[in-house]
Design a protein around this nucleic acid. Sequence first.
RNA 1: GGGUGUGUAGCUCAGGUGGUUAGAGCGUACGCCUGAUAAGCGUAAGGUCGGAGGUUCGAGUCCUCCCACACCCA
Length: 975
Amino acid sequence: MSSDVSAPDAAAPDYKNTLFLPQTDFPMRAGLPKREPEWLARWEAMGLYRRLRETAADRPKFELHDGPPYANGHLHIGHALNKILKDFVVRSRQMLGHDSRYVPGWDCHGLPIEWKIEEQFRARGQDKDAVPVNELRAQCRAFAAEWVDVQREEFKRLGIGGDWENPYLTMDFAAEATIASEFMAFVMNGSLYKGSKPVMWSPVEQTALAEAEVEYHERQSPTIWVRFRPVTLSVDQRTSPDWRPGDLAGADVVIWTTTPWTIPQNRAVCFNPGLSYGLYGVTEAAEDNWARTGETFLLADKLAADVFAQARVGGYERLRGVAATELEALVCAHPLRGVEGGAGEWDYDVPLLPGDHVTDEAGTGFVHTAPSHGLDDYEIGQRFKLEMTHNVGPDGAFRADLPLFGGLGVLDAKGKEGKANAAVIEKLQEAGALMARGRLKHSYPHSWRSKAPLIYRNTPQWFIAIDRPLDDGHGEHGATIRERALKSINELVAFTPPAGQNRLRAMIAQRPDWVVSRQRAWGVPLTCFVNRETGELLRDPEVNARVAAAFREEGADAWFAEGAKARFLGNAYDPEAWDQVRDILDVWFDSGSTHAFALRDRGGQWPADVYLEGSDQHRGWFHSSLLQGCGTRGRAPYKAVVTHGFTLDQNGEKMSKSKGNVVAPEKVVQEYGADILRLWVATADYTDDQRLGPDILKAAADGYRRLRNGFRYMLGALDGFDAAERVATAEMPELERWVLHRLAELDAEVRAAYGAYAFQRAYAALFNFVTGDLSAFYFDVRKDALYCDAPDSLRRRACRTVMDALFARLTTWFAPMLVFTMEEVWLSRFPGEDASVHLETFPETPADWRDDALAARMAQLRRVRRVGLGALEVERREKRIGAALEAAPVIHVADAALRETAASADMAELLIASGATVTDAPAPAGAFTLPEVPGVAVVAALAEGAKCARCWRVLRDVGRHAHPETCERCDAALA
RNA sequence: GGGUGUGUAGCUCAGGUGGUUAGAGCGUACGCCUGAUAAGCGUAAGGUCGGAGGUUCGAGUCCUCCCACACCCA
């Protein structure tokens, strides 16, 4: 099996204990689930967060402002991803040399918690409306507080560092006071007004419903095609080349709707300027048909055929195309204009308005618009100042004094079809305004409690005007909230990934005014008063100050306490003359205000350096904070916005309980440890959606083990390292200088990546370095020197000097990501009660480590090395060698420059062979080559001589030294 | 239905302004070592670059359409 040369004498001395093998107590297996809690306890005991603040007190501040999660339920993977990314940011900034505090927050008010409490009431048979509001609020508060505690522990377990003792809660009294104050700023600057907006309304329960309370079921609705007759034509039309006198005046604009009861509330007809429309004439129809021969209609071209089929028209022709400019100029009569018994109710004009929401997928290409009964309708109404109607009451019935339809219900008390639709259809038919009718089964909103159908109905609400110029002294970036917000997005905020900018801009550019009122109980009230006579808002700084002061002491409950109105109005106002608003602020106003009480009120940086949330928050927190900040401070409360995608299962599908593919962070922590979850975050491109599942976690754990062993090896190699061993860079072998060069490169890469929130880039660079450059190359090559060289050998000392530099950098560079493991690594080298890798900063890297010429040379050598390794591999396959030390390859290099490079290096060392020869002799046939390394051929000859019993190299001088069966180096090392 | 994105080996990701046989790491298979050993080293296999058209001498990279997935909205 083995040749004579390599077989050690049976009686050879055992030199193993004369070697300097790696020594470390650092365990190969991590046991993270068990050990991580120990590190957490240690950090808590040593007051790590406080110490971080102390050591960094005079550094420049970096402020990541935490978006508050909702205090309801256990953490899911999205929470974990978000907070881990934040932790990467906070820790990396700290180690880059900032004072990077982190104040975690919670969103505590709002509907979901209120529901839970209502549910508890119902379970006890109590009527929630009979419970005093402050009792309900107290229970909501207790409920939120409980979940804050639960979530806090769950976050801490993930290794998230922060001021967990002093988080901010939106329900803190101080926060409630600030939220109210911020709201009152909108009262004072004139942007708050009372308006009316359609909401999902349940006539059965007589209440508004939030989107989450709505479910969709199939329902059959009547459908009608209604004619709107133009009454006015503008001058523009006559300049159109297609103009024919009166051809549009006599044509009917046709709309289609599934809610005939909304026709009495019609205020406009919308069309889409991007669609193609035509003027159509009926050429053939039955005598008694609603659409008769000779009549003309305006329709979207794509839908005309459908409409005529529905209208039972046998033949029709397209007379001409109609331009958007012509449509825009049309004004129609309401179809019930002049109807008998209408009492002039509908004798108003109905304009044609452009709207992007109109499509030619279904209907007629014209959309009936009732601003009180639909969101698109409402927005169009806002834009074109259409009148809101108040024809439908809370019970879903027309107001009693509405002509023709007074008292008729859209739905009856049990949610069944009422009489309104039929009555409206009948009147339209009488008026000759119907072109066709039918029935349609479609998905329709229902209440998830009563299962009864819902309607859109306008209700009075409070709004913040976002296009009203504010004279508030914050006009540097624009006069209105929208202008300031757009300026912020365009010029003042950096977006990661860049697409976020467009997304937010599009939303801000086209959003309507902000509805801030909710008819709820658990939240901060709209702390304002309305004059009973005039409807005027009370604007008195003294009243506002009293409210804020009371909230600070007693919380927002003060607003609902006995005698609150008189208390806040004080002596200057007659309580009888003023109404106290009892609506609750939209929770988005709460969270939009966090920058005020979590940053401004707590000595933080304003604006924050960064907000980091899921991409859904473009509509949520980024959005509300932006509006709020622009309204009270004149700009975005952040300088940068970082967004992450969503976590899907490992097949790229959404996680859901029913699919059973949910990965709970708690489970990952129990099975693998938090560092594995954190490592997964570090490997994923968080800007897009990420995948997570058992296989992916396993892969993360594999990567972790590889890294861990790399650190373990460094620890072993550095055993007993003393500063006196250090070697100056200039005196190091080129292999060591090359490692330092790589460190210099990595230093720049890692800092840049962390600075750009590119954690994946940082991690990948580091991981590839550890596995590719260290484990597979440097460590492997240097084993011989490390184990066998005498302790005072320059080569070994240089190696340990470099190991020390590696250790200092790799531990700190990885520390923001692998918080537990890097602490473990650090402490196994530098134990001490006060020690922690997290108190370190990234070490400075000496400029002279960088050596691009050396890097180029090493790249050449590694190419030659690959050919050598390939040659050895062939020998192994042929069973001629096992270990590389049995070989002494001959390297034939054709190119003189490359040959010079190879000859001047220790190729035997790089190949971990016992010898190597570089020659210009032509390569013999059969020499090993690689196509990608032309001009290099290797013959993997066996090493000649005997195997040194200590270092296992096969050398000619073995056996000629004082210590039996040793080589010269080992003999000297033993002396 | 609309808006915003994404889609490169089993997995995680690279692939400025279009240009030789599309790369890396992990995993897998095979082999070596047995002085990092429930570790370490090496070699190999593995890709219709979501699909279809188009522009071009030439497209993973540009254009159009389509498909899938996700988020937001309706």
